[in-house]
């Protein structure tokens, strides 16, 4: 099966403030591929560059070098006009369901906006909006209401519906459940999986939470300081990680059970001690 999205040796830099300051390299040569219908989980801590990678795929981050190919076609460095044509293929669901919906617009106009931008007639768009709301499990009268009438989970459903409006082949999901409550989070994740099984859409699923990524991802990539340090099948990366950083990440997440967490805590301390010793000897040697 050929890849839907291929990222090769991608470098993204942001200019730093100040005269002649060296730019900040958010991504330092990242390579990754996503197959059609696949969920690629992307885990990392704040500042690891995972969000930047998602924004680069969406054309919202400045690509310095490397390539991003979608369906065999280079999509980094497209003009705004060319990029717009790609909007039916690549879509996004952001983390914050509060700021990703315009507070002054009705849900109906938020959802029909991408459709009317492509010249879909108003009545067709209305029909499609009803369909979309049904797909994400919201009542059809939601179209007349505004974002503030909805809870976080419902807003995230609206954001998902907006992403699906143009029937994309890839959706970049940037921490889509991090702002949600536990029970809502589980339901929204199941919605993501259900939609994927029905439509065959691929996800680049960004999260800081290993257990969330484990739940939705076929494969998982781990980012650390702008680089991908480990890629593999979901179960392997999230339960038997190989890279020292992934191991630390895995051990750091507290198990929601008191006695098992006690065991995990001891294991974590042991791992950190084991990892510290070799690195300290090397740094001592370097001095």
């Amino acid at each position: 099966m050929t890849a839907l999205l291929t990222i090769e040796d991608l470098v993204v830099s942001y200019p730093k403030k100040g005269f002649r300051a060296a730019p900040f390299r958010a991504l330092k040569g990242v390579s990754l591929d996503i197959r059609p219908g696949e969920t690629m989980g992307l885990v990392g801590e704040s500042g690891s560059g995972k969000t930047t990678l998602g924004r680069a795929v969406l054309g919202l981050a400045p690509v310095e070098s490397g390539s991003i190919r979608f369906d065999g076609r280079e999509i980094s460095g497209l003009s705004r006009r060319e990029r717009r044509a790609l909007s039916s293929d690549i879509q996004v669901v952001f983390q914050d369901p509060y700021s990703s919906l315009n507070p002054s617009m009705t849900i109906g106009s938020i959802l029909s906006e991408p459709l009317s931008a492509r010249g879909v007639s108003e009545s067709d768009a209305r029909g499609r909006v009803a369909e979309l709301l049904d797909d994400v499990g919201l009542p059809s009268d939601a179209a007349q209401r505004r974002a503030r009438d909805f809870s976080g989970g419902q807003r995230q459903r609206i954001a998902i519906a907006r992403a699906l409006a143009l029937e994309p082949r890839l959706v970049v999901c940037d921490e889509p459940v991090s702002a949600l409550d536990l029970t809502t989070q589980a339901r929204v994740l199941d919605l993501f999986i259900e939609i994927q099984e029905r439509t065959g859409v691929a996800y680049l699923f960004i999260s800081h939470d290993l257990s969330v990524v484990r739940h939705v991802s076929h494969r998982v990539a781990v980012m650390y300081h702008g680089e991908i340090v480990e890629v593999g099948n979901g179960d392997q990366v999230t339960a038997r990680p190989v890279h020292p950083y992934t191991q630390r990440l895995f051990m750091a997440a507290p198990v929601p059970h008191p006695r098992r967490q006690e065991v995990r805590r001891v294991e974590r301390r042991r791992l950190i001690d084991a990892q510290r010793t070799p690195s300290e000897t090397t740094s001592a040697a370097a001095l």
Partner: peptide
């Protein structure tokens, strides 16, 4: 810098819109 403006860009809206 609001996310909904980013979302609108990704949705393929022109700048004028």
């Amino acid at each position: 810098d609001e996310l909904y403006v980013d979302a609108a860009r990704v949705a393929g809206l022109s700048d004028a819109r």
